[in-house]
Design a protein around this nucleic acid. Structure first.
Length: 900
RNA sequence: AGGCCCGUAGCUCAGGGGUAUGAGCGCUUCACUGACACUGAAGAGGUCGGCAGUUCAAAUCUGCCCGGGCCUACCA
């Protein structure tokens, strides 16, 4: 079979463009069938693990998820090709509140008035679980559509039995260690929905209201919610406020006009701002977050005057049974009548509202489960630290690195303000608090309901983040072992092969918006339970914005980027590139059509360049490496490949994915496509064995380097050109030492400048780029390389003939246009001499060179610079100055000649 | 109120002590030379938000100011 037949078949199979829609599913299938993404727990290879942040099992993936997948898959594919034992654990999160509310909303739309009441706990939970199953399978297929090379055999879900076991065990252990306690705290109570809502589900809205100033024992206090004053138990003043100093520590009895009568203690607290109002703050511990804290630190009683039904309680005396607003009206009227109302001013009040019911949130005290972040019982490196201390310690010590670096500031700031974590939620969907009660006295905390009659389980469930906080390791425990109720948590971890092999994980990659919610809490829980950090590195990506720079929102559907649409129209590779190329850690990213188009072009370019290489190589096996590679252009290309491999590795290792991919794109497009591939079209170069080898190397190298970003098109090309096996599992390219070829590399760079010089002259003289011109090149440096590359210059610069002479004593042709370079002077004959144009160009170059030379002179003429700057900087400046001097002399001589 | 981030080419953004031959998109002129017009060639376009300071050297570090954004806490 001759090479021409081989060429024929290869070209035939390369379509004009990469047909992503046809090819992607088949490629995915090959990957899955190969089992290549399944990690092995045994073996000696270094382990590299990423726990995929589990998307909420409520809906579909958005672009924010895709950036997560694209970056993680990049790391995973890169490390796999580098030879690590790679594990990427996929999964989904049950998203307690979000999911429950979605399902309840659906049921209501179907006509059910009170789903919780009508269905009961078990049935509602069953319905939610059913809904989640459907959603999980949608999400699974979307994760696959992006090309994620995760290990589906290890897929996890935060409600898996094994994970539930971990949740319960951890809860019980924390309870034993005194890290979990039950206490009455202020919660965000929604009287309409009859549930608490998390802080995230509360939003604030400015509403016009009145600010009432009322007489209050010896004080005047201001409030926008007078009805809560009925429940006051103290007045707080700033400790340094002399106006009130004499009252501090005393207790006053305040009889309200129509009852009840309250006792108020005067306390000093730094939380009070002496500048605000009268400097005296009426403390309502039961109905304000801040007041509750003050009450805690001064051991004040908590008097609840508003009930869970939104009506005043018995403690409110004559107002009992009124709604909050009714009470406010009545109470204010009574105060006024009694002359206790000093003033009522117009006021813009920030009202807390529930984002779901749009109704006012009533802060109320309720029994809740809390995690104590200040109790020093966590064993860490031979000491006993509090959870808060460990959080700080592991990042300060460098056990965990965070990218971008400045996120550490945010992280530490958060730790400084960290309070005990309320983990109980009054909803049904989620991990139920593993606490059992019998009567009023008995309490049991543990995985299983205790033996005997009469036990009832706590009604509350745990905050979603409680189970997510265990994610890196709870996903690695052995599911069969976890089913054994007699195995304790320590043994379970000890005997789980995946946990032993793959934990701590290597990188946690997620959006900066959940640094606190999730990342910090994983550190908090995992260090306590396992004695290990959950991950060694944290990489935080930015938010994905729409083309207008806004957060993508459902209210602006026209600016939404739907990953499914983009994958369908432009392909998964294009979408992934758009989210990775040139993006920086922690910085938000706009996804515009421009950006997507540019990325699609790169996919196409790679496809077509590969087609050309395939045509040149034919269908046979890749050419073997010749004993020596001699042609400068080939040496230069090999050196470029080696350097881009090193560069990519380095930048990826530093988590500079945006930079790495950008440099790679530039190398591939500018150096390989625009220079090398064009250069070797010269006949005798194309025929060389060494050229065929370099081509094959270049194709293989670029396919490997691009694969982590655009796995589909690279995998497809890999098989189109008949390479063995899967690209996804083939070895990452090695660097070779090309330092001996430095001269060839510099020479080819001069060749490239020569080509540009000639082309520039043509454009300037209004000649078509394809028109043939005569050129004489007087060489000062790199004469040999220039000579060896003469046919390349002739082809790329379209010169009819190119004469090379030594720069010593040459005479240039009359009327030629010239360009001056450090390595050469080129004279191009372009018909009639145009002295004006010639002078213009030379003067422009002279001016630029002079400007640059003057800058250098300024530095070199400064003794302090020569003395204090790094020697290599001084040396570089001197060397550049010397080169510029030559060029300047040349330019001036030329101009002088023109002037005559 | 506190914290954090960002102001670099017309637009969107990288970079981040050595003097911007930074990218993509857009723009101007030319070219369909058998991989690619989703292309190639050449070019125009920036005193790196402002003012001080540190330094031999500042777009880069420090401080202040102006402008934009985000997060947290809340305004009794």
């Amino acid at each position: 079979m001759g090479p021409s037949e081989g060429e024929e078949s290869t070209v035939m199979s390369f379509t004009a463009h990469f047909e992503h829609g046809d090819r992607e599913p088949a490629i995915r299938q090959r990957w899955e069938e190969s089992g290549a993404f399944q990690a092995k727990a045994e073996g000696e290879k270094p382990a590299y693990t990423i726990s995929m942040p589990p998307p909420n099992a409520t809906g579909t993936l958005h672009v924010g998820h895709v950036v997560m997948l694209a970056l993680e898959d990049l790391m995973i594919r890169w490390r796999r090709m580098k030879g690590d034992e790679v594990l990427w654990v996929p999964g989904t999160d049950h998203a307690a509140i979000a999911t429950e509310s979605v399902v309840i909303k659906q049921l209501k739309e179907e006509g059910m008035e009170d789903p919780r009441g009508e269905l009961g706990r078990d049935e509602l939970v069953r319905r939610i679980a059913e809904f989640v199953e459907g959603s999980r399978s949608t999400i699974r297929s979307q994760i696959q559509a992006v090309g994620s090379s995760c290990d589906w055999s290890r897929e996890r879900y935060t409600m898996d039995a094994a994970l539930n076991r971990c949740v319960n065990e951890v809860f019980a252990r924390m309870f034993r260690d005194g890290l979990i306690y039950r206490g009455k705290r202020i919660v965000n109570w929604d009287p309409t929905l009859q549930t608490t809502v998390s802080d995230d589900e509360v939003y604030h809205e400015e509403r016009p209201a009145k600010l009432y100033t009322i007489r209050y024992g010896p004080f005047l206090v201001a409030t926008s919610r007078p009805e809560t004053k009925i429940g006051d138990t103290a007045v707080a003043v700033h400790p340094d406020d002399e106006r009130w100093a004499e009252h501090v520590g005393k207790t006053y009895t305040v009889p309200w006009p129509k009852g009840p009568t309250i006792e108020i203690k005067v306390v000093a607290d730094r939380k009070v701002d002496p500048e605000t109002g009268t400097g005296a703050l009426g403390v309502t511990p039961a109905h304000s977050h801040v007041d509750f804290e003050i009450a805690q630190s001064h051991d004040l009683p908590v008097l609840q005057v508003i009930g869970e039904d939104g009506r005043m309680t018995e403690a409110a005396g004559p107002y009992a049974g009124m709604t909050v607003m009714e009470c406010r009206k009545a109470f204010v009227a009574d105060l006024e009548e009694a002359g206790l109302l000093e003033s009522a001013d117009d006021y813009q009040q920030q009202t807390s509202l529930c984002y779901r019911s749009k109704k006012a949130i009533e802060p109320l005290p309720k029994e809740q489960w809390f995690i104590d972040v200040n109790k020093p019982v966590v064993p860490w490196k031979g000491r006993h630290l509090s959870m808060r201390q460990v959080l700080r310690e592991v990042v300060e010590s460098g056990d965990i690195e965070i990218f971008p670096d400045y996120s550490k500031k945010t992280y530490f700031h958060w730790i400084d303000n960290l309070r005990d974590w309320c983990v109980s939620r009054q909803i049904w969907w989620g991990h139920r608090v593993p606490v059992f009660y019998r009567g009023n006295q008995e309490i049991y905390v543990g995985h299983r309901q205790p033996e005997g009659e009469g036990w009832t389980q706590d009604d509350d469930s745990l905050d979603t983040w409680f189970s997510s906080a265990l994610w890196t390791w709870s996903t690695l425990v052995d599911a069969d072992l976890a089913a054994d109720p007699d195995l304790n948590l320590e043994d379970l971890l000890e005997r789980s092969p995946d946990f032993q092999r793959f934990h701590p994980t290597s990188v946690m990659e997620t959006g900066y918006d959940i640094l606190f919610f999730w990342v910090a809490r994983m550190i908090l829980m995992t260090t306590y339970v396992t004695g290990q950090v959950p991950f060694k590195n944290v990489y935080l990506h930015g938010l994905i914005l729409d083309r207008d720079g806004d957060k993508m929102s459902k209210s602006k559907p026209e600016t939404q980027v739907d990953p499914q649409d983009v994958i369908g129209e432009k392909g998964a590779d294009t979408l992934r590139l758009a989210l990775v190329l040139g993006a920086a850690a922690g910085q938000d990213l706009r996804v515009s059509d421009d950006r997507l188009t540019a990325c699609q072009r790169l996919v196409n370019k790679l496809w077509n360049a590969s087609k050309l290489v395939a045509m040149s190589l034919g269908d046979g096996p890749p050419p073997a490496e010749p004993d020596s590679v001699t042609h400068p252009i080939n040496r230069w290309m090999l050196a470029e490949l080696s350097s881009i491999v090193a560069d990519t590795d380095r930048r990826f290792a530093e988590f500079n994915f945006g930079d790495g991919s950008e440099k790679l794109r530039a190398s591939f497009w500018n150096e390989f496509c625009d220079l090398y591939l064009e250069a070797i079209k010269v006949e005798d170069l194309k025929e060389l064995d060494e050229t065929r080898f370099v081509l094959s190397e270049a194709l293989s190298t670029y396919l490997h380097l691009f694969h982590p970003m655009m796995p589909f098109v690279t995998e497809e090309i890999w098989s189109q050109v008949g390479r063995e096996g899967l690209l996804a599992t083939s070895a990452w390219p090695e660097q070779r030492d090309t330092s001996a070829w430095a001269n060839d590399v510099a020479g080819v760079q001069a060749v490239s400048r020569l080509i540009s010089s000639i082309r520039r002259i043509k454009v300037e003289r209004k000649l078509a780029t394809s028109s043939s011109v005569e050129a004489v090149v007087a060489t000062k440096e790199h004469a040999q390389v220039l000579a060896a590359c003469r046919p390349v210059v002739e082809r790329l610069a379209r010169t009819g003939s190119l004469e090379l002479v030594d720069a010593e004593g040459w005479t240039e042709p009359d009327g030629a246009s010239t360009a001056v370079d450090a390595a050469f002077v080129v004279a191009v004959s372009v018909g009639e001499a145009d002295l004006e144009k010639e002078r213009e160009r030379l003067e422009k170059q002279l001016e630029q060179s002079k400007k640059r030379r003057e800058g250098l002179e300024k530095r070199l003429g400064n003794p302090a610079f020569v003395e204090k700057a790094k020697p290599e900087v001084v040396e570089a400046a001197r060397s550049e100055a010397a080169t510029l001097d030559e060029t300047l002399a040349e330019l001036e001589a030329r101009l002088a000649k023109l002037g005559s």
